[in-house]
């Protein structure tokens, strides 16, 4: 068990390092002049500067040192939670992240909860219903839900629930009511993804011989589905939970922009537009860390939910 945990943790750290390094390489090795880009982000046009001013500006943003040295310094600082200064906003990147993280965390949490409820409810009712047309309809819904572009869904919800019905505000980062529409927008996608996986694994589990046995023993259909099928079918859903959490964060980029919410997603969008490399780097690292941590937690939960995984470990030892 210890070896399993240590292995998983080591893997997580490796993934995180790779994500940081690849992002750094991509951002710094873009086929454009990183100096001009970064100075441009700070509102300075290089062709306006004299050579000595250009040198001074480059020194200010650490651009005058070799790439490898920049990389090592940045990595070392990042390990200490220091991602440098935002070029376009002139404030420490860490402050920006800390300032914005609450809004996105709340959004992710609500969207995640809605996805779980929505995904399970849909999958469960699809497998419970016996009337074929209704089953068919429900089983097709996730594909529809996953196909709608999020900015469109967002604008549609704003039009109906903010402008016409005035139930929720259209924009802002102000309390729970401003959270509802963006969370629904995101969960439409994520609950669809979840429901798709759940439906398939429900169908598969229900075809297993032990289900037939349970039914033959006289258990009701509902009891069989709830007690016997559900827990087994939920395992694959656990696996994609990491993906779903990740999706809620990446969806925040579009959703927060449409709803003018000040979270990490909107920060990412602003940083990309402004080519604010330190901020982009920090956000990618943060998102990667989130993926890694959620997946690590899922990996560590497996043995608890499915004892077979630990047994396999024991045998292989």
């Amino acid at each position: 068990m210890t070896r399993y945990v240590l292995g998983r943790v080591a893997q997580a750290v490796g993934v995180l390092w790779a994500a940081y390094t690849v992002t750094f390489a991509v951002l710094y090795l873009l086929p454009s002049d990183p100096v001009a880009l970064q100075l441009g982000a700070a509102g300075i046009e290089t062709d306006k500067l004299s050579p000595s001013q250009l040198d001074a500006a480059m020194a200010r943003y650490d651009l005058d040192r070799p790439v490898l040295e920049q990389y090592l310094t940045h990595l070392w600082n990042a390990l200490h939670g220091d991602f440098g200064m935002s070029i376009s906003k002139q404030v420490p990147v860490t402050d920006l992240l800390v300032d914005r993280i609450g809004a996105t965390a709340a959004l992710s949490l609500l969207a995640g909860t809605l996805s779980l409820i929505g995904g399970f409810a849909l999958a469960y009712s699809a497998s419970y219903l016996r009337w074929r047309p209704a089953r068919l309809l429900l089983s097709r819904l996730p594909s529809v839900g996953a196909s709608f572009p999020q900015f469109f869904v967002g604008l549609l919800l704003i039009q109906v629930f903010a402008f016409n019905l005035a139930w929720f505000p259209a924009t802002g980062t102000d309390g729970f009511s401003s959270l509802v529409l963006p969370a629904v927008t995101i969960s439409l996608l994520t609950s669809s993804v979840l429901a798709q996986v759940l439906m398939r694994s429900f169908d598969e589990t229900l075809r297993q011989p032990y289900i037939v046995t349970a039914r033959a023993k006289g258990l009701s259909r509902a009891a069989v589905q709830w007690k016997h099928a559900f827990r087994n079918a939920a395992l694959p859903a656990m696996t994609i939970l990491g993906v779903v959490v990740g999706l809620t964060v990446t969806s925040a980029i579009v959703t927060e922009t449409v709803f003018s919410r000040n979270g990490i997603g909107k920060l990412a969008q602003e940083a990309v537009i402004a080519q604010d490399v330190p901020v982009v780097l920090a956000i990618v690292t943060f998102a990667a860390a989130l993926f890694v941590v959620v997946n690590l937690v899922v990996d560590l939960l497996y043995p608890l939910l499915d004892p077979r995984i630990v047994h396999v470990q024991k045998v292989s030892r």
């Binding site: 604008l155 704003i158 039009q159 903010a162 005035a166 259209a170 924009t171 449409v258 003018s260």
Partner: peptide
């Protein structure tokens, strides 16, 4: 002063008195 990216949302905010 707030910042709203989408033109139609900004207009809608005005019309809905937000």
């Amino acid at each position: 002063f707030t910042y709203v990216a989408e033109d139609s949302v900004r207009t809608g905010n005005l019309v809905s008195k937000a």
